[in-house]
Deep mutational scan, measured.
Amino acid sequence: MGFKLLSKLLVYLTASIMAIASPLAFSVDSSGEYPTVSEIPVGEVRLYQIADGVWSHIATQSFDGAVYPSNGLIVRDGDELLLIDTAWGAKNTAALLAEIEKQIGLPVTRAVSTHFHDDRVGGVDVLRAAGVATYASPSTRRLAEVEGNEIPTHSLEGLSSSGDAVRFGPVELFYPGAAHSTDNLIVYVPSASVLYGGCAIYELSRTSAGNVADADLAEWPTSIERIQQHYPEAQFVIPGHGLPGGLDLLKHTTNVVKAHTNRSVVE
């Protein structure tokens, strides 16, 4: 069995187990497998329904001669939608809004960016022009300005110390501490036991640490421990890039980060 097929099978099995364990909360999309990078042309966006009122959005972007996937989250909030992270750029984010209108038909009224990198804030200006209120932590807003990236308009308070959590509509926002970046936030959907790890969490097929220019490698494993301790009931975990899975993604990420750190020390 090929690795790609095995990865998709694991996603399907995880979703099936969740649907059985929580039949009222989960209505997993039966329309197909989780979209992969090879299936999404740059400039297009796919939506994948995880649970009743919960979707991931998947886009792709060219970077350094390669094409990478990027995940975000959409959560229903009454007759409105909360968006977590842009679709990595203005063109993708405009396509995301169009796809949401086509498939869901509810307005996106608020959006949260989970850290300051372009795959999370690139497209904020498109959201703002569409009347979406954009939010991020003060740290993310400051770092985005320093980096020359787009800056969300509103500040999220109460997320300055490791372990801080605040309720934001249908989700809980959690600051686990520094990891992929010093400002990275985690998003949890309690009604569906869905954990969105953003770039602080890796997919299972990833074996290298990737972009760690703004990471705190020493603190990252401790931050992941905080996530595990705060959300032990999480059933569906979405990484910032690639295929979702279960809580095993947290341990896998820790292993990859520690291996990278150990290699760096040896070198």
Score class of each variant (00 low, 15 high):
37 V>W: 08
129 A>V: 09
54 V>K: 04
145 E>G: 11
126 V>Y: 12
114 T>V: 00
150 E>A: 11
131 G>A: 12
39 E>M: 10
150 E>W: 05
64 D>R: 10
211 N>C: 04
249 L>Y: 04
12 Y>L: 07
143 L>W: 14
95 A>N: 13
104 I>W: 04
241 H>I: 00
253 T>W: 01
183 D>P: 00
177 G>C: 02
79 D>N: 06
171 V>H: 00
157 E>P: 13
267 E>L: 13
82 L>R: 02
259 A>W: 11
266 V>W: 14
140 T>D: 02
11 V>L: 10
160 S>V: 14
239 P>T: 06
150 E>S: 12
168 F>H: 03
19 A>W: 14
225 E>Y: 04
48 Y>H: 07
61 Q>C: 06
182 T>M: 06
19 A>M: 15
218 A>V: 10
37 V>G: 07
127 L>A: 04
88 W>Y: 01
90 A>T: 08
25 A>D: 06
2 G>N: 08
109 T>S: 14
181 S>K: 01
63 F>I: 12
48 Y>I: 10
198 G>Q: 03
82 L>K: 00
83 L>T: 05
142 R>E: 12
66 A>N: 14
223 S>K: 03
2 G>F: 13
215 A>P: 04
199 C>W: 02
136 A>L: 03
58 I>G: 03
262 N>C: 10
165 A>E: 12
139 S>F: 02
13 L>A: 08
80 E>P: 04
258 K>C: 09
165 A>L: 14
65 G>N: 15
27 S>D: 11
83 L>Y: 01
24 L>A: 09
6 L>D: 13
76 R>Q: 07
119 D>Y: 01
247 L>S: 08
51 A>F: 11
197 G>H: 02
171 V>Q: 01
235 Q>Y: 06
256 V>R: 05
158 G>I: 06
239 P>L: 02
188 Y>L: 02
155 S>W: 09
68 Y>D: 04
211 N>M: 14
164 D>C: 04
257 V>E: 02
126 V>D: 04
63 F>K: 13
122 G>Y: 06
78 G>V: 11
168 F>T: 02
217 L>Q: 06
70 S>L: 03
208 S>H: 15
156 L>V: 13
39 E>R: 10
252 H>N: 14
209 A>S: 11
154 H>M: 14
55 W>G: 01
5 L>W: 12
111 A>W: 04
43 G>I: 03
170 P>G: 10
59 A>Q: 15
38 S>D: 09
201 I>L: 15
145 E>D: 08
81 L>H: 01
103 Q>M: 07
161 S>I: 11
214 D>A: 11
232 P>G: 09
118 D>H: 10
37 V>Q: 13
159 L>T: 05
231 Y>V: 08
214 D>H: 09
69 P>T: 06
78 G>N: 08
39 E>N: 08
128 R>S: 12
111 A>G: 14
19 A>T: 14
201 I>P: 03
260 H>K: 13
131 G>F: 15
78 G>C: 06
220 W>P: 00
14 T>M: 11
16 S>P: 09
33 E>D: 11
165 A>H: 05
108 V>I: 05
169 G>I: 03
215 A>E: 05
43 G>C: 04
218 A>K: 15
264 S>T: 12
262 N>L: 07
15 A>L: 08
230 H>P: 04
25 A>W: 13
213 A>Q: 08
31 S>P: 10
255 N>T: 08
85 D>H: 02
240 G>Q: 01
29 D>L: 13
119 D>R: 01
72 G>S: 02
17 I>L: 06
54 V>Q: 03
63 F>L: 10
183 D>M: 00
3 F>T: 10
106 L>A: 13
208 S>L: 08
144 A>C: 09
159 L>N: 01
245 G>K: 02
171 V>N: 01
252 H>D: 02
69 P>D: 07
